[in-house]
Amino acid sequence: MAVWDKKVLCGFIFLLTGAVSQRVNYSDPVCGVKGSTVTLLCTFTPGTTVTDGGEVSYEITRVLWCQNQGICQTTNPTVYDNKQQNNPDNPRYRYLGDTKGNCSLQISALEEEDDATLYFRMEGDTLSSFYAGRAGVRVTVVDVTQMKILSSRDGEFKRGEAVTLTCTTKCTFHQLQVTWFRDGHALTDTGPSLHLGPLTAEDSGNYTCNLKNNVSTLSHPFSLNVEAGEEEPSTPTVAVIVGVVVGVLLALCSLILVLCIIRRKRAADKNQSAVRGEAGPKPDDDVSSNVQRGGDTEAEDDVSYAPIQFKARSQARPVEEADDAIIYSSVVGRG
């Protein structure tokens, strides 16, 4: 009888030890903006049992998540149950864990109905192998929350430096786009962080951010002033580059046009000079001299004078008149 009582006592102690070793560790309470995605971090430790081979852990075959149920009864509605293929009733809940020790759960597209406390439960092949974490994890869903801008650095900002502005809030807004503004004008960036640098005077202004299409989440303005320093070498803009190229092309066209005009003018002057050369004086082939000799050759000392006449030419060149121009021809008599 004493031997049997001892075996029962030892079995009870092992059973109690196995039950005590089972535990579930939840993450801190989670706050999420409506429409965003949150992750509930969770780990668990299965219980142990004693076999002929020694102490071994229970094999977990079923994992469940439920709302507002401390022990997460399987007879009550659940948000996730791995025994339900693809979990058709709750497609927004995705189990990120396994049956070994990770029990994390992801909730996407948060809705007001997700504002609750969620609990995890594990089950094995025996009744003593099930366990539910009673603490649970609190999920808070908010529709309106004011954003806040944090800077990667404090102090004054100078030209050429860089800074990162982060749009944040106490609640998670994962997978929700952020709209950034500078002096009320929307910027193209949509991420939770805005990187600026190298800073210029144009980056100065009041920055605000909010969740896209949710004006009620607009943050307080963050003032960014970039100190005036030494003038930075101006970076050529597209307009400047285009202007320079057009100016060079116009200058080349003008030069080519001037050269063409000069060449044509020279060719015209050359043709005109050629025309004038043809109209100039020719050898005096039109001058005829008529030498008349009086009598026979016998009169040695007789000299006769022949008058010379100039004929007018048909060209436009003025005729030079030779007043009283007489060409004398001397005829030497034969002796």
Score class of each variant (00 low, 15 high):
S216C: 01
G136F: 04
L110I: 04
V20M: 09
S152R: 11
C209K: 11
L40I: 15
V331F: 13
N214A: 11
G136C: 01
L176Y: 11
G335P: 15
V242C: 09
V258A: 13
T208Y: 08
L40N: 06
K7C: 10
G191S: 15
G205C: 05
E320C: 01
P221E: 06
G295R: 14
V319E: 08
F157M: 13
R92V: 01
V38N: 03
Q175T: 12
Q309S: 13
M1A: 14
E321P: 01
R138C: 00
Q84F: 02
M147D: 03
N68T: 04
V30W: 03
V226Q: 04
V79D: 12
S329C: 09
I13E: 11
L165T: 02
R276G: 00
T37W: 01
D189C: 02
A325I: 07
A268M: 06
K148N: 11
I107G: 03
H174D: 12
S329I: 11
F173I: 02
Y80L: 07
N213V: 00
G197L: 09
V332C: 05
A186P: 13
Q175A: 08
Y80Q: 09
A2P: 04
T51P: 12
Q106N: 04
D296S: 15
S151P: 13
E156C: 03
D89N: 11
E161N: 03
A267H: 12
E111D: 10
T145D: 12
T17P: 00
P318C: 00
T217D: 06
T17D: 02
L41G: 07
P221T: 03
P77K: 12
V248A: 14
E320A: 10
R276D: 05
R182L: 10
E278C: 03
T61L: 06
T188N: 15
D302R: 12
G133L: 13
Y131A: 00
C31E: 13
G54N: 15
R92F: 09
P77R: 09
R266Y: 12
M1C: 01
D302P: 00
H174F: 08
H195C: 01
V215A: 15
K34A: 03
I241L: 11
S57M: 10
E55I: 14
G54Y: 07
Y95W: 02
T61G: 10
Q292Y: 09
T188S: 15
G294E: 09
T179R: 09
E231N: 05
G243C: 04
G136S: 01
T51N: 02
V319S: 08
N210C: 11
G54W: 09
G280H: 06
T235S: 07
G155S: 08
A306D: 08
D89Y: 06
A132Y: 03
G32E: 00
L64A: 07
E278T: 05
F12H: 14
E123N: 04
P233H: 09
S21P: 05
E59D: 11
I261T: 05
D269R: 14
F130T: 05
A322C: 07
A228W: 02
A316I: 07
E161F: 00
I327N: 05
D81L: 04
I326K: 12
L211M: 06
C31Q: 13
E113T: 08
G191P: 08
D323M: 04
V20G: 01
G229I: 01
R276L: 12
R317I: 10
I149M: 02
T237R: 07
T188R: 14
D203H: 14
K170R: 07
V238S: 11
E227W: 05
